[in-house]
């Protein structure tokens, strides 16, 4: 059987889906992605802000600002 040499619509759909998934990222460890081009949602600038909390307060010797 001869290949047509042209992508079928369903192949394009898969390609677009893969690109979209890749752009969304994993939502995992921010350190893995920070420093790269900042995420944008439309014209919105997303700022990643790291907080600390919790454990230190439980240990009493430090405040818990976050």
């Amino acid at each position: 059987m001869k290949r047509s040499g042209r992508r079928k619509p369903w192949m394009l759909a898969i390609l677009v889906m893969a690109l979209l998934l890749s752009a969304c990222g994993s939502g995992g460890d921010p350190a893995d992605s920070a420093g790269a081009e900042p995420e944008k949602s439309g014209e919105k600038v997303k700022l990643q802000m790291w907080f600390w909390q919790g454990a230190a307060f439980e240990k009493l010797f430090r405040s818990s600002t976050g």
């Binding site: 921010p30 350190a31 920070a34 420093g35 949602s41 014209e43 919105k44 600038v45 997303k46 700022l47 990643q48 802000m49 790291w50 907080f51 600390w52 909390q53 919790g54 454990a55 230190a56 430090r62 818990s64 976050g66």
Partner: peptide
């Protein structure tokens, strides 16, 4: 036009991660 997205870490981890970065 801005969205601050907080990421929470344990005290020790937050400082170590920043130092590593």
């Amino acid at each position: 036009g801005i969205e601050v997205v907080p990421q929470i870490y344990k005290w020790e981890d937050a400082h170590k991660k920043l130092l590593t970065a």
